[in-house]
Design a protein around this nucleic acid. Structure first.
Lengths: 216, 216
DNA sequence: TACTGTGAAGTGATTCACAGCG
DNA sequence: CGCTGTGAATCACTTCACAGTA
Protein backbone atom coordinates (compact mmCIF):
# COMPACT_ATOMS: atom_id res chain seq x y z
CA UNK A 1 0.00 0.00 0.00
CA UNK A 2 2.93 2.37 0.45
CA UNK A 3 3.06 4.44 -2.70
CA UNK A 4 6.62 3.71 -3.86
CA UNK A 5 6.89 0.21 -2.52
CA UNK A 6 4.89 -1.15 -5.42
CA UNK A 7 7.45 -3.29 -7.17
CA UNK A 8 7.59 -2.99 -10.93
CA UNK A 9 4.68 -4.86 -12.38
CA UNK A 10 5.80 -3.03 -15.50
CA UNK A 11 7.78 -5.07 -17.95
CA UNK A 12 11.51 -4.82 -17.33
CA UNK A 13 13.54 -5.41 -20.47
CA UNK A 14 16.59 -7.64 -20.23
CA UNK A 15 18.80 -4.61 -20.88
CA UNK A 16 17.09 -2.70 -18.07
CA UNK A 17 17.63 -5.55 -15.63
CA UNK A 18 21.31 -5.65 -16.51
CA UNK A 19 21.62 -1.90 -16.01
CA UNK A 20 19.81 -2.01 -12.68
CA UNK A 21 21.92 -4.89 -11.48
CA UNK A 22 25.04 -2.98 -12.41
CA UNK A 23 23.62 0.10 -10.73
CA UNK A 24 23.07 -1.87 -7.56
CA UNK A 25 26.69 -2.98 -7.61
CA UNK A 26 27.79 0.62 -8.13
CA UNK A 27 25.66 1.83 -5.26
CA UNK A 28 27.24 -0.74 -2.98
CA UNK A 29 30.64 0.64 -3.85
CA UNK A 30 29.51 4.22 -3.26
CA UNK A 31 28.09 3.18 0.10
CA UNK A 32 31.42 1.63 1.07
CA UNK A 33 33.09 4.88 0.09
CA UNK A 34 30.79 6.66 2.52
CA UNK A 35 28.90 8.63 -0.13
CA UNK A 36 25.54 9.82 1.19
CA UNK A 37 23.78 11.13 -1.88
CA UNK A 38 24.48 10.93 -5.60
CA UNK A 39 22.93 12.49 -8.68
CA UNK A 40 22.09 10.61 -11.86
CA UNK A 41 24.78 12.75 -13.52
CA UNK A 42 27.47 11.61 -11.11
CA UNK A 43 26.40 7.98 -11.38
CA UNK A 44 26.43 8.16 -15.15
CA UNK A 45 29.91 9.64 -15.30
CA UNK A 46 31.32 7.18 -12.79
CA UNK A 47 30.07 4.11 -14.66
CA UNK A 48 29.77 5.19 -18.27
CA UNK A 49 26.01 5.13 -18.36
CA UNK A 50 23.46 7.68 -19.53
CA UNK A 51 22.00 9.93 -16.82
CA UNK A 52 18.55 10.11 -18.39
CA UNK A 53 18.43 6.36 -18.62
CA UNK A 54 19.29 5.91 -14.97
CA UNK A 55 16.50 8.30 -14.00
CA UNK A 56 14.03 6.55 -16.31
CA UNK A 57 14.98 3.11 -15.04
CA UNK A 58 14.58 4.20 -11.44
CA UNK A 59 11.40 6.17 -12.05
CA UNK A 60 9.84 3.04 -13.58
CA UNK A 61 10.23 1.29 -10.24
CA UNK A 62 8.98 4.12 -8.07
CA UNK A 63 10.03 7.62 -7.09
CA UNK A 64 13.27 7.24 -5.23
CA UNK A 65 14.97 10.57 -5.85
CA UNK A 66 14.89 13.91 -4.10
CA UNK A 67 14.55 16.81 -6.52
CA UNK A 68 17.39 19.25 -6.28
CA UNK A 69 19.49 16.76 -4.33
CA UNK A 70 19.72 13.38 -6.04
CA UNK A 71 19.38 9.89 -4.62
CA UNK A 72 20.21 8.77 -1.07
CA UNK A 73 22.75 6.02 -1.69
CA UNK A 74 22.07 3.67 1.22
CA UNK A 75 18.30 4.00 0.91
CA UNK A 76 18.26 3.51 -2.85
CA UNK A 77 20.57 0.51 -2.64
CA UNK A 78 18.34 -1.19 -0.08
CA UNK A 79 15.14 -0.49 -2.00
CA UNK A 80 16.63 -1.56 -5.30
CA UNK A 81 17.99 -4.78 -3.82
CA UNK A 82 14.56 -5.50 -2.39
CA UNK A 83 12.73 -4.82 -5.66
CA UNK A 84 15.19 -6.87 -7.70
CA UNK A 85 14.96 -9.68 -5.16
CA UNK A 86 18.70 -9.53 -4.52
CA UNK A 87 18.40 -8.80 -0.81
CA UNK A 88 18.36 -12.43 0.19
CA UNK A 89 20.46 -15.50 -0.49
CA UNK A 90 19.27 -18.00 -3.07
CA UNK A 91 20.43 -21.59 -3.12
CA UNK A 92 22.03 -22.77 -6.37
CA UNK A 93 22.88 -26.26 -7.60
CA UNK A 94 25.26 -27.03 -10.44
CA UNK A 95 24.71 -29.96 -12.79
CA UNK A 96 27.99 -31.22 -14.22
CA UNK A 97 31.05 -31.51 -11.97
CA UNK A 98 33.59 -31.17 -14.75
CA UNK A 99 36.16 -28.42 -14.72
CA UNK A 100 33.71 -25.71 -15.64
CA UNK A 101 31.06 -26.86 -13.20
CA UNK A 102 33.51 -26.99 -10.32
CA UNK A 103 35.04 -23.66 -11.27
CA UNK A 104 31.59 -22.05 -11.26
CA UNK A 105 30.54 -23.75 -8.03
CA UNK A 106 33.68 -22.44 -6.32
CA UNK A 107 33.66 -18.98 -7.88
CA UNK A 108 32.96 -15.82 -5.97
CA UNK A 109 30.38 -14.85 -8.58
CA UNK A 110 28.19 -17.74 -7.48
CA UNK A 111 28.92 -17.49 -3.75
CA UNK A 112 28.37 -13.91 -2.69
CA UNK A 113 25.69 -12.31 -0.57
CA UNK A 114 22.94 -13.24 -3.01
CA UNK A 115 23.86 -16.80 -3.96
CA UNK A 116 25.25 -19.95 -2.39
CA UNK A 117 26.07 -23.15 -4.25
CA UNK A 118 24.80 -26.09 -2.20
CA UNK A 119 25.82 -29.02 -4.39
CA UNK A 120 27.26 -30.28 -7.64
CA UNK A 121 25.71 -33.21 -9.53
CA UNK A 122 27.35 -35.66 -11.87
CA UNK A 123 26.91 -39.20 -13.17
CA UNK A 124 30.62 -40.03 -13.12
CA UNK A 125 31.17 -42.39 -10.18
CA UNK A 126 34.81 -41.28 -9.94
CA UNK A 127 33.86 -37.82 -8.76
CA UNK A 128 30.57 -38.56 -7.00
CA UNK A 129 31.03 -38.58 -3.24
CA UNK A 130 33.90 -36.12 -3.37
CA UNK A 131 33.96 -32.38 -2.90
CA UNK A 132 35.05 -29.38 -4.94
CA UNK A 133 38.12 -27.44 -3.81
CA UNK A 134 36.04 -25.13 -1.65
CA UNK A 135 34.08 -28.05 -0.23
CA UNK A 136 30.88 -28.19 -2.28
CA UNK A 137 29.69 -31.82 -2.21
CA UNK A 138 29.45 -33.72 -5.48
CA UNK A 139 26.32 -35.86 -5.49
CA UNK A 140 24.95 -38.39 -7.93
CA UNK A 141 22.64 -36.92 -10.54
CA UNK A 142 20.02 -39.45 -9.55
CA UNK A 143 19.57 -37.70 -6.22
CA UNK A 144 18.87 -34.37 -7.91
CA UNK A 145 15.09 -34.27 -7.32
CA UNK A 146 15.26 -34.99 -3.61
CA UNK A 147 18.34 -32.81 -3.10
CA UNK A 148 16.83 -29.78 -4.83
CA UNK A 149 13.87 -30.06 -2.53
CA UNK A 150 15.88 -30.54 0.66
CA UNK A 151 18.31 -27.73 -0.15
CA UNK A 152 15.50 -25.45 -1.22
CA UNK A 153 17.41 -24.72 -4.42
CA UNK A 154 15.81 -22.10 -6.63
CA UNK A 155 18.39 -21.95 -9.40
CA UNK A 156 20.08 -24.69 -11.39
CA UNK A 157 23.25 -24.16 -13.41
CA UNK A 158 23.98 -26.44 -16.36
CA UNK A 159 27.65 -27.19 -17.00
CA UNK A 160 27.44 -30.44 -18.95
CA UNK A 161 28.30 -31.18 -22.59
CA UNK A 162 25.90 -29.91 -25.24
CA UNK A 163 24.32 -33.31 -25.86
CA UNK A 164 23.32 -33.71 -22.18
CA UNK A 165 22.07 -30.16 -21.69
CA UNK A 166 18.46 -30.75 -22.66
CA UNK A 167 18.14 -33.69 -20.27
CA UNK A 168 19.81 -31.77 -17.45
CA UNK A 169 17.43 -28.86 -17.98
CA UNK A 170 14.40 -31.14 -17.96
CA UNK A 171 15.63 -32.79 -14.75
CA UNK A 172 16.14 -29.43 -13.08
CA UNK A 173 12.75 -28.13 -14.14
CA UNK A 174 11.08 -31.35 -12.95
CA UNK A 175 12.96 -31.11 -9.66
CA UNK A 176 11.36 -27.73 -9.07
CA UNK A 177 14.04 -25.09 -9.65
CA UNK A 178 12.59 -21.79 -10.83
CA UNK A 179 15.55 -20.59 -12.87
CA UNK A 180 18.05 -22.35 -15.11
CA UNK A 181 21.36 -20.87 -16.21
CA UNK A 182 22.65 -22.90 -19.13
CA UNK A 183 26.34 -22.75 -20.07
CA UNK A 184 26.20 -25.57 -22.61
CA UNK A 185 26.35 -24.60 -26.30
CA UNK A 186 22.81 -25.79 -26.91
CA UNK A 187 19.73 -23.74 -26.17
CA UNK A 188 17.30 -25.48 -23.87
CA UNK A 189 13.71 -24.99 -22.89
CA UNK A 190 11.45 -23.18 -22.66
CA UNK A 191 9.68 -24.62 -19.64
CA UNK A 192 6.44 -23.47 -18.11
CA UNK A 193 7.77 -23.86 -14.59
CA UNK A 194 11.23 -22.33 -14.99
CA UNK A 195 12.91 -19.34 -16.59
CA UNK A 196 15.88 -20.26 -18.74
CA UNK A 197 18.86 -18.09 -19.53
CA UNK A 198 21.36 -19.40 -22.04
CA UNK A 199 24.96 -18.25 -21.72
CA UNK A 200 26.58 -19.88 -24.70
CA UNK A 201 30.34 -19.57 -24.22
CA UNK A 202 31.03 -20.67 -27.78
CA UNK A 203 28.76 -17.93 -29.08
CA UNK A 204 30.47 -15.36 -26.85
CA UNK A 205 33.83 -16.19 -28.35
CA UNK A 206 32.46 -16.39 -31.88
CA UNK A 207 30.68 -13.06 -31.69
CA UNK A 208 33.93 -11.48 -30.55
CA UNK A 209 35.80 -13.14 -33.42
CA UNK A 210 33.25 -11.86 -35.91
CA UNK A 211 33.96 -8.31 -34.78
CA UNK A 212 37.64 -8.82 -35.46
CA UNK A 213 37.21 -9.59 -39.15
CA UNK A 214 33.80 -8.29 -40.19
CA UNK A 215 34.02 -4.99 -38.38
CA UNK A 216 37.79 -4.60 -38.66
CA UNK B 1 34.72 -8.64 -57.32
CA UNK B 2 32.26 -11.51 -57.34
CA UNK B 3 28.87 -9.96 -56.77
CA UNK B 4 27.80 -11.76 -53.59
CA UNK B 5 31.25 -12.17 -52.07
CA UNK B 6 31.22 -8.59 -50.82
CA UNK B 7 31.33 -9.14 -47.08
CA UNK B 8 28.94 -7.06 -45.03
CA UNK B 9 30.32 -3.61 -44.79
CA UNK B 10 26.87 -2.91 -43.38
CA UNK B 11 26.63 -2.63 -39.65
CA UNK B 12 25.83 -5.93 -38.03
CA UNK B 13 24.05 -5.56 -34.70
CA UNK B 14 25.18 -7.72 -31.81
CA UNK B 15 21.88 -9.57 -31.96
CA UNK B 16 22.35 -10.24 -35.65
CA UNK B 17 25.85 -11.61 -35.11
CA UNK B 18 24.53 -13.96 -32.46
CA UNK B 19 21.75 -15.16 -34.75
CA UNK B 20 24.14 -15.70 -37.65
CA UNK B 21 26.57 -17.56 -35.48
CA UNK B 22 23.78 -19.80 -34.28
CA UNK B 23 22.62 -20.22 -37.85
CA UNK B 24 26.08 -21.36 -38.86
CA UNK B 25 26.05 -23.97 -36.12
CA UNK B 26 22.62 -25.14 -37.28
CA UNK B 27 23.78 -25.40 -40.87
CA UNK B 28 26.72 -27.53 -39.79
CA UNK B 29 24.30 -29.93 -38.15
CA UNK B 30 22.07 -30.02 -41.23
CA UNK B 31 25.10 -30.73 -43.38
CA UNK B 32 26.07 -33.63 -41.15
CA UNK B 33 22.52 -34.93 -41.51
CA UNK B 34 23.02 -34.86 -45.25
CA UNK B 35 20.44 -32.16 -45.94
CA UNK B 36 21.06 -30.50 -49.30
CA UNK B 37 18.73 -27.54 -49.30
CA UNK B 38 16.66 -25.84 -46.63
CA UNK B 39 14.07 -23.06 -46.61
CA UNK B 40 14.01 -20.20 -44.15
CA UNK B 41 10.75 -21.68 -42.90
CA UNK B 42 12.31 -25.02 -42.12
CA UNK B 43 15.31 -23.39 -40.46
CA UNK B 44 13.06 -21.21 -38.36
CA UNK B 45 10.95 -24.10 -37.16
CA UNK B 46 13.95 -26.30 -36.38
CA UNK B 47 15.67 -23.66 -34.24
CA UNK B 48 12.90 -21.48 -32.92
CA UNK B 49 13.80 -18.45 -34.96
CA UNK B 50 11.74 -16.18 -37.22
CA UNK B 51 11.82 -17.04 -40.93
CA UNK B 52 11.65 -13.42 -42.10
CA UNK B 53 14.53 -12.54 -39.83
CA UNK B 54 16.71 -15.32 -41.21
CA UNK B 55 16.02 -14.11 -44.75
CA UNK B 56 16.75 -10.51 -43.82
CA UNK B 57 19.95 -11.40 -41.99
CA UNK B 58 21.18 -13.42 -44.94
CA UNK B 59 20.08 -10.91 -47.56
CA UNK B 60 22.10 -8.24 -45.74
CA UNK B 61 25.25 -10.22 -46.43
CA UNK B 62 24.50 -11.03 -50.04
CA UNK B 63 22.01 -13.04 -52.04
CA UNK B 64 22.54 -16.64 -51.07
CA UNK B 65 19.15 -18.19 -51.67
CA UNK B 66 17.48 -19.72 -54.67
CA UNK B 67 13.92 -18.53 -55.14
CA UNK B 68 11.42 -21.30 -55.11
CA UNK B 69 13.95 -23.69 -53.60
CA UNK B 70 15.63 -22.29 -50.50
CA UNK B 71 19.29 -22.25 -49.49
CA UNK B 72 21.94 -24.81 -50.43
CA UNK B 73 23.16 -25.97 -47.03
CA UNK B 74 26.82 -26.75 -47.75
CA UNK B 75 27.31 -23.67 -49.89
CA UNK B 76 25.61 -21.32 -47.46
CA UNK B 77 27.55 -22.72 -44.52
CA UNK B 78 30.88 -22.21 -46.28
CA UNK B 79 30.05 -18.66 -47.40
CA UNK B 80 28.68 -17.69 -44.00
CA UNK B 81 31.73 -19.07 -42.20
CA UNK B 82 33.95 -17.10 -44.56
CA UNK B 83 32.03 -13.84 -44.11
CA UNK B 84 31.93 -14.20 -40.33
CA UNK B 85 35.62 -15.04 -40.28
CA UNK B 86 34.93 -18.39 -38.63
CA UNK B 87 36.52 -20.48 -41.37
CA UNK B 88 39.98 -20.40 -39.85
CA UNK B 89 41.50 -21.10 -36.45
CA UNK B 90 42.34 -18.20 -34.15
CA UNK B 91 44.84 -18.45 -31.36
CA UNK B 92 43.55 -17.58 -27.88
CA UNK B 93 45.42 -16.91 -24.65
CA UNK B 94 43.84 -16.96 -21.20
CA UNK B 95 44.97 -14.64 -18.42
CA UNK B 96 44.37 -16.15 -15.00
CA UNK B 97 45.10 -19.84 -14.41
CA UNK B 98 42.66 -20.24 -11.56
CA UNK B 99 39.86 -22.76 -11.73
CA UNK B 100 37.80 -20.78 -14.18
CA UNK B 101 40.75 -19.93 -16.42
CA UNK B 102 41.85 -23.53 -16.62
CA UNK B 103 38.33 -24.77 -17.18
CA UNK B 104 37.89 -22.35 -20.08
CA UNK B 105 41.31 -23.13 -21.54
CA UNK B 106 40.47 -26.83 -21.53
CA UNK B 107 36.87 -26.50 -22.66
CA UNK B 108 35.63 -27.64 -26.02
CA UNK B 109 34.01 -24.24 -26.53
CA UNK B 110 37.45 -22.66 -26.72
CA UNK B 111 39.16 -25.48 -28.62
CA UNK B 112 37.06 -26.31 -31.63
CA UNK B 113 37.64 -25.73 -35.30
CA UNK B 114 37.69 -21.94 -34.90
CA UNK B 115 39.75 -21.50 -31.74
CA UNK B 116 42.77 -22.97 -30.03
CA UNK B 117 44.06 -21.96 -26.59
CA UNK B 118 47.84 -21.66 -26.77
CA UNK B 119 48.68 -20.65 -23.22
CA UNK B 120 47.50 -19.65 -19.78
CA UNK B 121 49.13 -16.80 -17.85
CA UNK B 122 49.36 -16.26 -14.11
CA UNK B 123 51.52 -14.53 -11.54
CA UNK B 124 51.30 -17.34 -8.96
CA UNK B 125 54.68 -19.11 -8.97
CA UNK B 126 53.03 -22.29 -7.70
CA UNK B 127 51.18 -22.85 -10.98
CA UNK B 128 53.59 -21.18 -13.42
CA UNK B 129 55.61 -23.76 -15.32
CA UNK B 130 52.88 -26.36 -15.08
CA UNK B 131 50.18 -27.34 -17.50
CA UNK B 132 46.39 -27.52 -17.46
CA UNK B 133 44.73 -30.93 -17.53
CA UNK B 134 44.63 -30.98 -21.32
CA UNK B 135 48.22 -29.77 -21.53
CA UNK B 136 47.96 -26.02 -22.06
CA UNK B 137 51.17 -24.50 -20.64
CA UNK B 138 50.89 -22.04 -17.77
CA UNK B 139 53.35 -19.18 -18.28
CA UNK B 140 54.32 -16.25 -16.13
CA UNK B 141 52.26 -13.12 -16.80
CA UNK B 142 55.49 -11.21 -17.37
CA UNK B 143 56.06 -13.13 -20.57
CA UNK B 144 52.66 -12.16 -21.96
CA UNK B 145 53.84 -9.55 -24.50
CA UNK B 146 56.45 -11.77 -26.13
CA UNK B 147 54.25 -14.86 -25.95
CA UNK B 148 51.26 -13.20 -27.59
CA UNK B 149 53.49 -12.16 -30.45
CA UNK B 150 55.17 -15.55 -30.87
CA UNK B 151 51.90 -17.47 -30.68
CA UNK B 152 50.17 -15.03 -32.99
CA UNK B 153 47.34 -14.76 -30.48
CA UNK B 154 44.42 -12.65 -31.64
CA UNK B 155 42.12 -13.07 -28.66
CA UNK B 156 42.74 -12.76 -24.94
CA UNK B 157 40.40 -14.13 -22.28
CA UNK B 158 40.36 -12.57 -18.83
CA UNK B 159 39.70 -14.95 -15.94
CA UNK B 160 41.22 -13.06 -13.03
CA UNK B 161 39.54 -11.47 -9.98
CA UNK B 162 37.64 -8.23 -10.55
CA UNK B 163 40.37 -6.04 -9.09
CA UNK B 164 42.99 -7.35 -11.55
CA UNK B 165 40.77 -7.27 -14.63
CA UNK B 166 41.59 -3.74 -15.77
CA UNK B 167 45.33 -4.38 -15.60
CA UNK B 168 45.00 -7.70 -17.41
CA UNK B 169 43.00 -6.05 -20.16
CA UNK B 170 45.55 -3.27 -20.55
CA UNK B 171 48.34 -5.83 -20.75
CA UNK B 172 46.51 -7.81 -23.40
CA UNK B 173 45.74 -4.74 -25.48
CA UNK B 174 49.34 -3.58 -25.22
CA UNK B 175 50.54 -7.03 -26.19
CA UNK B 176 48.61 -6.72 -29.41
CA UNK B 177 45.54 -8.93 -29.12
CA UNK B 178 42.62 -7.67 -31.20
CA UNK B 179 39.80 -9.03 -29.06
CA UNK B 180 39.29 -9.35 -25.32
CA UNK B 181 36.70 -11.56 -23.67
CA UNK B 182 36.33 -10.51 -20.05
CA UNK B 183 34.79 -12.87 -17.51
CA UNK B 184 35.60 -10.77 -14.46
CA UNK B 185 32.73 -8.89 -12.80
CA UNK B 186 34.20 -5.53 -13.75
CA UNK B 187 33.75 -3.90 -17.12
CA UNK B 188 37.03 -3.04 -18.81
CA UNK B 189 38.07 -0.87 -21.69
CA UNK B 190 37.34 0.45 -24.17
CA UNK B 191 40.61 0.31 -26.07
CA UNK B 192 41.37 1.76 -29.48
CA UNK B 193 43.33 -1.32 -30.51
CA UNK B 194 41.05 -4.07 -29.24
CA UNK B 195 37.37 -4.96 -29.14
CA UNK B 196 36.15 -5.86 -25.66
CA UNK B 197 33.24 -8.12 -24.79
CA UNK B 198 32.27 -8.37 -21.16
CA UNK B 199 30.63 -11.59 -19.97
CA UNK B 200 29.84 -10.81 -16.38
CA UNK B 201 28.92 -14.11 -14.72
CA UNK B 202 27.61 -12.37 -11.62
CA UNK B 203 25.27 -10.30 -13.78
CA UNK B 204 24.10 -13.41 -15.62
CA UNK B 205 23.07 -15.03 -12.38
CA UNK B 206 21.57 -11.84 -10.99
CA UNK B 207 19.50 -11.13 -14.08
CA UNK B 208 18.09 -14.64 -13.84
CA UNK B 209 17.33 -14.16 -10.15
CA UNK B 210 15.52 -10.90 -10.90
CA UNK B 211 13.21 -12.74 -13.27
CA UNK B 212 12.31 -15.15 -10.49
CA UNK B 213 10.94 -12.52 -8.16
CA UNK B 214 10.15 -9.45 -10.27
CA UNK B 215 8.54 -11.33 -13.14
CA UNK B 216 7.14 -14.18 -11.06
C1' DT C 1 19.12 26.64 -7.78
C1' DA C 2 19.95 21.79 -8.85
C1' DC C 3 17.96 18.02 -9.52
C1' DT C 4 14.29 14.44 -10.62
C1' DG C 5 10.44 12.56 -13.31
C1' DT C 6 8.41 12.42 -17.82
C1' DG C 7 6.10 13.52 -22.33
C1' DA C 8 7.85 13.82 -26.88
C1' DA C 9 11.08 12.94 -30.41
C1' DG C 10 14.36 10.02 -32.36
C1' DT C 11 16.55 5.68 -33.51
C1' DG C 12 17.01 1.01 -34.48
C1' DA C 13 15.48 -3.52 -34.76
C1' DT C 14 11.69 -6.80 -35.78
C1' DT C 15 7.70 -8.38 -38.23
C1' DC C 16 4.55 -8.24 -41.97
C1' DA C 17 3.11 -8.71 -46.58
C1' DC C 18 3.93 -9.06 -51.13
C1' DA C 19 6.46 -8.27 -55.55
C1' DG C 20 9.56 -10.90 -58.35
C1' DC C 21 12.07 -14.78 -59.75
C1' DG C 22 13.65 -19.78 -60.57
C1' DC D 1 3.95 -22.78 -57.62
C1' DG D 2 7.18 -21.94 -53.67
C1' DC D 3 10.41 -19.38 -51.88
C1' DT D 4 13.55 -15.43 -51.51
C1' DG D 5 14.45 -10.53 -51.06
C1' DT D 6 12.62 -6.23 -49.48
C1' DG D 7 9.79 -1.88 -48.80
C1' DA D 8 6.43 -0.61 -45.41
C1' DA D 9 4.54 -0.92 -40.85
C1' DT D 10 5.14 -1.93 -36.26
C1' DC D 11 7.31 -2.21 -32.05
C1' DA D 12 10.72 -1.31 -28.41
C1' DC D 13 14.22 1.15 -26.56
C1' DT D 14 17.01 5.33 -26.02
C1' DT D 15 17.82 10.16 -25.77
C1' DC D 16 16.32 14.79 -25.45
C1' DA D 17 14.36 18.66 -23.32
C1' DC D 18 11.85 20.72 -19.96
C1' DA D 19 8.07 21.20 -16.48
C1' DG D 20 7.84 20.68 -11.62
C1' DT D 21 9.57 20.46 -6.98
C1' DA D 22 12.44 20.25 -2.55
Amino acid sequence: MTPAARPGREHLSEAAVLRLSLLLRSLARLEEDGTDTVSSQALAQRFGMNAAQIRKDLANLGEFGVRGLGYRVADLRARLASILGLDRTRVVVVVGAGHLGQALADSGSFNGASFRVAALFDVDERVVGGRSRTGVPILHAGTLPSSVASFGAEIGVIAVPAESAAAAAADLAAAGVKGILNFAPASVGPFASATVKNVDLTLCLESLAVRLSAAG
